[in-house]
């Protein structure tokens, strides 16, 4: 029980600990319907936060961390009639030590954990 593989299981303590403070490290704007994909916008934003080239983000495909097409469907997919049935809000998930937030207005924001300010 002491050792758990990090197979995407989000331990409650890990995620919602009141001690974890987050500060925004990078953001990218995703434009639905452009040539760029949401996956790419997220990877670019994480690479910005890490200050590396997107090509260096290897070994852990985003596919294994989050269902990007589901986010795309919820927020951005055109419904073919010009109507907007899109959800409004944001989705958050963890990728390595980062917290990634995809907002329905198209902004992808990456947060890194910071030391809490103690008085």
């Amino acid at each position: 029980m002491s050792k758990r593989s990090d197979d995407g299981s989000v331990g409650g303590d890990d995620f919602s600990s009141a001690d974890t403070h987050w500060s925004q490290a990078a953001q990218r704007y995703y434009e639905p319907g452009g040539t760029g994909e949401l996956t790419t916008a997220i990877v670019y934003a994480i690479a910005d936060a890490q200050e590396v080239s997107p090509n260096e983000l290897r070994g852990r495909p985003l596919y294994e961390s989050v269902d990007v097409p589901a986010i795309e469907d919820a927020f951005f997919r055109p419904d073919g009639r010009g109507d907007s049935h899109h959800g409004v809000g944001s989705v958050e998930f963890r990728y390595t030590e980062y917290l990634v937030k995809v907002r329905s207005d198209g902004w992808v924001q990456v947060y890194e954990p910071t030391e809490p300010d103690r008085p």
Partner: peptide
């Protein structure tokens, strides 16, 4: 690069 990243990650 944009295509490469989407292929690799999705």
């Amino acid at each position: 690069q944009e295509v490469y990243i989407s292929l690799y990650h999705a």
